[in-house]
Design a binder for these strands. Structure first.
Length: 427
DNA sequence: ATCACGGTTTGCA
DNA sequence: CTAACGTGCAAACCGTGAT
């Protein structure tokens, strides 16, 4: 007889906020938010901040004065810290199953098939305790026969404190599931975003239960194949497999807003150079080569008093490359073509596309692939930067003062990845 | 009329 | 003093030219 699959979704509660709290316990029990890049929007909120009404993605400038009056602590995002804490959590969780999919910076799926359903809830508690003890981070765990149901179970574990942080749908009674599914809004389901919610409501689908009972074939015709999979998964039929090895990326993006509006070409060149280097580093880490470079700039879409300008272009390369120097030359060439003076630019973006693996590369017209010399040079660059800190070795076109750099008014120290910042705290 | 292609837009997290 | 709103990725969509 076929055993019911047991997929667990483990998710750190309010991840960025919880990371800040590990190193600053005074934040415990207080309203805290963490802001997106450039201190733009609130992207992580403690439960206390949620209770005060801070919305996900709310622009910080609208919130700032009010938030400070209410005593809400606000942090700029510190990705070095969060990435390191994430690695620690993922390593701990990996010990609980041979099959793990790291789904995002704060979430992973584990295949726990084989445990008795009743034992799994206890097992979940053990997992929670270990992560808490070894990292200081609180996690919730959802368990179900499909990834979509595991996600939903995780939501239930978060919503209902009486669950003790673990919700195991495989061991819940049909009545209990009915009660939950009829109470939870359809929009909470993985893959049902804010655009679909009103459309679903229009055809009478408001709750998870409504969606579960919808006809997958008809819904596929009306919406998309994604919708069909969501419905089948809600009914315990696995349509989305565990991806233990991440499939190779099809594009790599580096895109950032500026701290202040930028009008001159020279500053844009610096920013594009930096973004290209970051994208190229990601490219080499994944052992890939890019067939073309896309570069784009735009003014603020929110500023209605000024003329909006956005433009971008694709620069095909003669042969796939992973060389920061070549990629930067291409990006800057494109930038000079799309640049128009007289605008106040707010964002630049570099995207590497046409990605191929080392052995799938096509040569250029003259039968030349990118030489080994460039590979060696990049290897040396990457090693020096890994050893002495990212950005130690870079192209001069990135500039040095970089007055356009993004705002980070209140970033915490990189406690776990930078000795200098740690010593600074001890003082 | 249909298809493959590529570039652009939409949607999600 | 004023102005200030993220990023990464892939699926869906759409227009085009070829057949």
């Amino acid at each position: 007889m076929q055993m019911t699959r047991a997929i667990a979704l483990i998710d750190v509660n309010n991840f960025y906020v919880s990371c800040e709290r590990v190193f600053n316990p005074r934040l415990e029990g207080k309203p805290v938010v963490v802001l997106s890049n450039n201190d733009g929007c609130a992207v992580a909120r403690s439960n206390e901040a949620k209770a005060l009404g801070v919305k996900m993605g709310q622009p910080w400038f609208q919130l700032k004065d009010w938030a400070q009056r209410r005593g809400i602590a606000a942090y700029s995002s510190n990705y070095a810290l969060y990435a390191d804490m994430s690695n620690r959590v993922m390593n701990i969780l990996a010990a609980f199953s041979p099959r793990q999919e790291v789904y995002s910076i704060d979430e992973c799926f584990l295949d726990l098939t084989g445990f008795k359903a009743q034992d799994l809830t206890l097992h979940g508690q053990r997992i929670r305790r270990r992560v808490r003890q070894w990292t200081g981070l609180p996690v919730c765990i959802g368990i179900g026969p499909t990834k979509t149901l595991a996600k939903l179970a995780n939501h239930i574990a978060k919503q209902y404190p009486e669950s003790g942080g673990v919700c195991n749908l495989n061991d819940a009674s049909p009545q209990q599931r009915y009660e939950w599914f009829s109470r939870i809004a359809a929009g909470e389901v993985w893959g049902i975003g804010r655009r679909l919610v009103p459309q679903l409501r229009g055809i009478g689908i408001k709750t998870v239960l409504d969606l579960q009972r919808a006809c997958p074939v008809a819904m596929r015709a009306r919406f998309s194949v994604v919708m069909e999979k969501v419905i089948r998964e809600l009914n315990g039929v696995a349509c989305i497999e565990l991806e233990e090895i991440a499939p190779p990326r099809k594009q790599i993006v580096s895109s950032r807003s500026f701290g202040v509006p930028v009008s001159d070409l020279a500053s844009l060149e610096e920013a594009v150079s930096l973004y290209t280097r970051r994208a190229a580093e990601k490219l080499r880490r994944q052992q890939l080569f890019a067939g073309s470079v896309y570069v784009a700039i735009r003014t603020s879409p929110f500023n209605t008093r000024e003329q909006y300008y956005a433009n971008g272009m694709i620069i095909p390369l003669p042969a796939p490359s992973a060389d920061t120097i070549r990629l930067t030359k291409a990006a800057l060439w494109g930038l000079r073509r799309i640049y128009r003076s007289g605008y106040r630019y707010q964002k630049a973006r570099v995207m590497l596309t046409g990605l191929v693996g080392m052995n799938d590369r096509q040569c250029d017209l003259f039968g030349l692939a990118e030489g080994n010399k460039s590979g060696k040079l990049m290897e040396v660059m990457d090693r020096i930067n890994a050893w002495m800190g990212n950005g130690t070795l870079k192209l001069a076109s990135e500039g040095f003062r970089q007055p356009w750099k993004m705002k980070q008014a209140n970033r915490s120290p990189s406690y776990t990845t930078n000795w200098d910042e740690l010593i600074c705290v001890a003082d």
